[in-house]
Amino acid sequence: MTALEFAVQDVAGAIGARRVGADRVELCAALGSTGGLTPSIGMIEAVVSTGMPVHALIRCRAGGFVYAEDDEIAVMNADAKAAASAGAAGLVVGALTPDHRVDVGVLERVLDGVPVDDIELTFHRAIDQIADRAAAIETLIDQGMTRVLTSGGAARCSDGLDELAAMVHQAAGRLQIMAGGGVTAADIPALAHIGVDAIHLSARRVVADDGGPGGGTAGHERLDDELAAAVAARLRTTAAG
């Protein structure tokens, strides 16, 4: 059956994901405003304690995925080691060269000293900035990645179905293809039909919460339990045929 992963930012999100039968969570911070950053170690430990498999995002800043500064790479390496020590079942990483290829050198530095044989590794949506994704897939396989999160290079997975199908065909079980990017419950049948290994979405809502002059006014994001349940139910129904 196609696996289901929710991107969450707190303990409540992980519990909600577990309640609807998700297989794992990607844990991150500042998801809506930045696309996701590394969560705190305290948050990783708290979410791990729920019993839900946690895949921690390792991303030190917002913006692009070219990391030319030694301090950025060092921070991500420290975060990766700490997340693994905190009980993360997997890490979500990614780095590009200036000409938008997989930056193998940076990935190796980020994962230096991390027990990669004991955890799963996901290459995140940096791949959607790579023109030659076929070459990238082979590189990721060579690097021992477990899976790649991708919309097929489109703004939304529903617009990238042909490319996602091509990636599934090329990977042929050597690398899991996880579809993510603007996924809705209505997209589930088409994604399952092309054979993606997993489906990823945030299913989040904004809780109004005025932080005042120093705390921002946008509120905070939480997993939308009803939407998460609808997605999980649609996936089960699709699998049942």
Rank of each mutant, 00 (worst) to 15 (best):
L91A: 08
E69T: 14
T150I: 03
S33K: 04
P98F: 03
V66R: 07
Y67E: 13
A88W: 00
V110W: 07
G42T: 05
D118Q: 13
V110R: 14
L31K: 00
T38R: 08
L140A: 01
L107Y: 14
G35P: 11
A84E: 02
H124R: 15
M52A: 15
V110F: 12
T97S: 14
A154F: 03
R24L: 02
A74L: 14
V66Q: 06
R61I: 04
V114E: 10
H55M: 05
V106F: 03
G152I: 01
R61S: 07
L107D: 01
S33M: 13
E69V: 04
V106I: 06
G153I: 10
D79P: 08
T38F: 09
D70F: 14
C60A: 15
C28I: 10
I58R: 01
A136N: 10
A131Q: 15
D99F: 06
M43Y: 03
A74F: 09
R147L: 04
G113Y: 08
A29L: 06
T139Y: 15
G51T: 12
L31T: 01
T150M: 06
G87A: 05
A86D: 01
T146S: 10
A131K: 14
D71H: 15
A88T: 02
M43D: 07
G90A: 00
V148T: 04
V114L: 03
A155R: 13
G113Q: 07
A84C: 09
A126V: 01
R61N: 11
M145K: 10
T34E: 06
G113C: 03
A131H: 14
N77D: 05
G105P: 09
A135I: 13
V93F: 00
P53H: 01
S151K: 13
P39C: 11
G94W: 03
D71K: 14
T122Q: 01
F123S: 09
I137M: 10
V102Y: 12
F65H: 13
A135D: 14
N77I: 01
A68D: 15
I73K: 08
D71Q: 12
V114H: 02
L37S: 11
A154I: 06
D118C: 09
G90Y: 00
M76S: 04
A74I: 11
E45Y: 08
A136L: 06
P53M: 01
I130A: 07
V148M: 04
A56P: 05
V148L: 04
A95H: 07
L140R: 11
H55D: 02
A80D: 09
A62T: 13
R59Y: 06
A126Q: 00
D70N: 06
P53L: 02
S49G: 12
V25D: 00
L31P: 01
A74Y: 14
T34Y: 14
D118P: 07
D103R: 12
V116S: 09
T122L: 12
A136F: 11
A154T: 05
V114T: 11
L149K: 08
